[in-house]
Nucleic acid binder design. Structure first.
Lengths: 217, 217
DNA sequence: GTCTATAGGAGGATAGAC
DNA sequence: GTCTATCCTCCTATAGAC
């Protein structure tokens, strides 16, 4: 099904093949833009990324970018919607027979992998203009709510099953999981070049769920 | 003992009282600058903080700022040196009879408190110009090395004593502790207004050392 | 919708008088 | 060393031709 954005009167009066082709070209280009933005956001962060860079990376003029997205903030928003969709797809694909705790671990592992692969956009939490744009982005907010609801449900189940420590409020657990997406420990360890990506993920995953203290005893 | 920066030929030929007074005024002003920078860095981060803001906050002209510090990066560097000194003072003041593990917990607790009080400057890890300036700042690097060495020693002792999980490489533990200084979980929980500062600190401290998983069994 | 060219403005840094 | 007044670069966003 076409989304509303790509459907208009002009296209409705053209022949179906041409319409589809045009629409596909449009979406393909926007996908290319989002991919570039995503990578640049992961590499340098929102402030350091310039719109000129994005245009150059995509291979189009800056003015053309602004025909697709009205502002730099909207570019970042589109990238966030993109990762949110990927997250939703990942949640959908989790094996049904897995326990709630296993699912939570898998999600964090996926997040860390995305970050190490340089595909996790990093946004400043302070920029208010960006925050406003993001809060007004329905696609993003809907995705965020959906993901939060699903993770929240698993957190409560895992606590009821005694896998997750019940002394932590579920919201604190949720935030702690989200925070792994901006954990600088990954970069620190990567810079040291002492450990492979998989080892780094295992380390961070274990410190997150098991804690630093020795267990048992 | 006067540091080199404040000692010059003009002052050597003046009378001692006047010299001391002048020098104290100078240092007092630089302290005021650093305090402002520290607060603004904690509030908005390095990129969002403008030099105009700093000047306005201190109550002096922007050009005067640049007589004290040659660049915005050096301003941030001075703020980092300041917190590093505070950290060193905190380490010095820790009770000698405390165990290595207790000391590590105390340090993280102190860090979290500083962050919640809005006194922990937050710098981007990507800005290369800032990184270069910081790496070239001897005072900062010396302080960082000293703190890292002391924490590293405690980490090894705590592992030998079975308090800290020995499966984690000490360097990974060190980074994990440092990372608490930029953990967004604190802001998330503070924004929710459900928990007091002390409760937030306790939550983050426990997730850090005990992990999310249920213990024992 | 894509381009070239440019407006408009924020912000880091400096000149030069005192 | 402090000030006022600028300079100058960089970056977001837009105008206008095709």
């Amino acid at each position: 099904m076409l989304n509303y954005k790509g459907y208009n009167a002009t296209m409705a009066t053209s022949n179906p093949t041409k319409v589809s082709f045009k629409a596909q070209m449009l979406l393909a280009r926007e996908d290319a833009i989002i991919q570039s933005v995503n990578r640049l956001l992961a590499e340098k962060g929102f402030e350091a990324m310039t719109v000129d860079e994005v245009a150059a990376d995509v291979g189009i003029a800056k003015a053309s970018l602004y025909k697709h997205f009205p502002s730099k903030e909207d570019l970042a928003g589109a990238a966030m919607v993109s990762v949110m969709r990927r997250a939703q797809a990942f949640l959908d694909a989790l094996p049904a027979q897995a326990s709630a705790m296993e699912k939570l671990r898998s999600v964090v592992q996926w997040t860390l992998g995305l970050k190490l692969a340089g595909e996790m956009p990093s946004l400043p939490s302070q920029n208010s203009k960006l925050r406003t744009t993001l809060m007004g982005n329905k696609d993003y907010m809907d995705g965020l709510m959906d993901v939060s609801d699903r993770l929240g449900a698993w957190i409560e189940v895992a606590q009821a099953q005694g896998a997750l420590n019940p002394k932590f409020p579920p919201i604190a657990v949720l935030y702690t999981l989200y925070a792994r997406a901006c954990d600088p420990v990954l970069e620190f360890l990567k810079m040291g070049e002492l450990y492979s990506n998989d080892e780094i993920i295992a380390l961070v995953l274990d410190t997150c769920f098991d804690g630093l203290s020795a267990r048992g005893r």
